[in-house]
Design a protein around this nucleic acid. Structure first.
Length: 482
RNA sequence: GCCCUCAUCGUCUAGUGGCCUAGGACAUUGCCCUUUCACGGCAAAGGCACGGGUUCAAAUCCCGUUGAGGGUACCA
């Protein structure tokens, strides 16, 4: 058995969609699991949909998620070029070869005529299909039209009889009546190939052994198989992955919110979380583990275990994964990753050790990196808050004043600036005042953080330092006295 | 319309004829921990789309129905 070779073949139309990236992931995992090669190929055969900078967005996204490739437009390889717009001659040559063999033909029909034809067919409740008007043009007629500069396309001559079937790795046997397959355009009038021609030619010459792609391609697979047969090539093995769906079960699209990989990065998702989540959309291991690193996925992934049914992209689960990874990476690492988000919010931590200490306190509360500023801002500036925040439920102004004054006294007199001593001293203080610990700890915490929810009072006090803590207590006391 | 594909808790899924009284995770609810919010722990609720077969035995096999998704372009 020869080496597995798979490819991710996106068209450069912008920030890659998470659904496409999930397909890329499955390709990548299959390649790494089998010790095969993972190839990136840019399918830029549609000049209309091209978007500037897409190649880079694709490379960035793959790299960000940790998927590296063995051959591609940027790094080359034995079957370069890996950008279809640079292989036009090859496609044209093969289209012509099929015309020569009588398996494809020139078509001079205008877009308008095709449109009209389809409308009539639809009105008659028939499947829209090319009517083969140009199938029987004579050599002379064809030559005359070409010489006259008439635009043309080349169409595959699909047999009207028989069936075409294939064994899908995920779905098993899939079969189509040839009579429902249209005479697909192979070469467009602008000289570019259609996807169908280009991917078959490239997959053949690039030695692709397994075509792993989304379910939406099932219906075009018979056309591809016919092409392999027409050229006399052995088709690769096919595996059609389930679709990634929106919560309403429709195709996940922009109207459902974030769909691009870069969007998720900007929203504060960790690549580890996105990878783990995406891998579990349509695949599950044999055991009940939920947490897998990319390497562990490579180890465990089996194409045969991929599900058939479409999977809804569940943000809740993604959030859980993200929170999980945030809690489990090193604090130092997390601090570095929050930096861009903090800076964007105008928080510029100049003391790295201090930042790490602060991050440690919010690590188990953070669901995504974008929350870092609102979780951490009070560590870097005096917080704004309503005085009422200083008064916990079942307490009152006077008690809070008393408590805060006592805090000042206790903290100022504390020699050992560490957790246990502070806790002991403050709890004792509450006892002396005859109030519950919550009646002293809530005001303290609120005075320091300005938030109803935050890390614990002792931890925050410790990190903020004696001087800052006392200053904030003064401000709190002042606010309560207004 | 036609063609293809699919169908287990709300969601992602385990399950390949008896280990299923259908397991796990997310979400939800309750309790515990607790100065708050989280985290963590414990518990609860919640599912084999429907109808026929086959079989001693079916979530698992077959047929049909329904529903959902995809395709039906000189887009990929």
């Amino acid at each position: 058995m020869s080496e597995v070779r798979v490819r991710f073949a996106p068209s450069p139309t912008g920030d890659p969609h998470v659904g496409n990236i999930r397909t890329a992931l499955f390709n990548y995992l299959y390649a790494r699991h089998t010790g095969g090669k993972f190839i990136v190929r840019i399918e830029d055969t549609d000049q209309v949909r091209l978007k500037e900078g897409s190649d880079q967005a694709i490379f960035d996204s793959l790299r960000w998620l940790g998927m590296n490739w063995d051959e591609g437009p940027d790094c080359g390889g034995p079957h370069a070029p890996y950008r279809q717009s640079e292989r036009l001659e090859l496609y044209k040559k093969h289209a012509l070869e099929l015309v020569e063999k009588g398996m494809a033909y020139y078509c001079f029909c205008s877009a308008e005529r095709l449109d009209q034809m389809r409308q009539i067919q639809e009105a008659a409740k028939k499947a829209p299909m090319y009517d083969r008007k140009c199938l029987n043009l004579t050599k002379e007629e064809i030559k005359a039209k070409i010489d006259a500069g008439e635009p043309y396309v080349i169409r595959l001559k699909v047999p009207r009889e028989g069936t075409t079937e294939f064994e899908d790795i995920i779905r098993g046997k899939v079969s189509f009546e040839n009579s429902v397959v249209d005479d697909q355009v192979l070469l467009k009038s602008d000289g570019f190939p259609t996807y169908h021609l280009a991917c078959v030619v490239d997959d053949h010459y690039m030695g692709i052994t397994n075509v792993i792609r989304a379910e939406e391609w099932i219906s075009s697979t018979p056309k591809h198989i016919m092409l392999y047969e027409a050229f006399g090539w052995t088709p690769p093995r096919f595996a059609h992955c389930p679709m990634v769906l929106a919560p309403d079960r429709s195709k996940l699209s922009k109207r459902h919110g974030a769909t691009g990989v870069k969007q998720f990065r900007d929203l504060g998702y960790l690549p580890e979380a996105l990878v783990n989540f995406l891998a579990f959309l349509g695949w599950a291991p044999q055991d009940e583990r939920e947490i897998f690193s990319l390497d562990e996925l490579c180890e465990a992934f089996e194409l045969e275990r991929v599900n058939k049914a479409g999977a809804i992209f569940d943000m809740n689960k993604l959030d859980w994964y993200n929170g999980y990874y945030i809690r489990h990476i090193a604090t130092e690492d997390l601090a570095n990753r929050t930096l861009p988000f903090l800076e964007k919010a105008g928080i510029v931590p100049n003391d790295h050790d201090y930042l790490v200490k602060c991050v440690a306190l919010v690590q188990e509360r953070m669901k995504n990196l974008a929350e870092a500023p609102e979780l951490l801002d009070f560590f870097f500036k005096q917080p704004e808050y309503e005085p009422s925040l200083l008064i916990p439920k079942k307490s009152d102004v006077e008690t809070s004043k008393k408590a805060l004054a006592k805090c000042k006294e206790v903290l100022a007199g504390l020699d050992a600036w560490e957790h246990d001593a502070m806790e002991e001293a403050l709890r004792k203080a509450a006892e002396e005042l005859g109030i519950k610990s919550g009646q002293i700890l809530w005001p303290l915490r609120a005075a320091l953080t300005g938030k109803p929810a935050s890390p614990g009072a002792f931890e925050v006090t410790l990190v903020l330092g004696k001087k800052e803590a006392l200053a904030r207590l003064d401000i709190a006391l002042e606010r309560l006295s207004r």
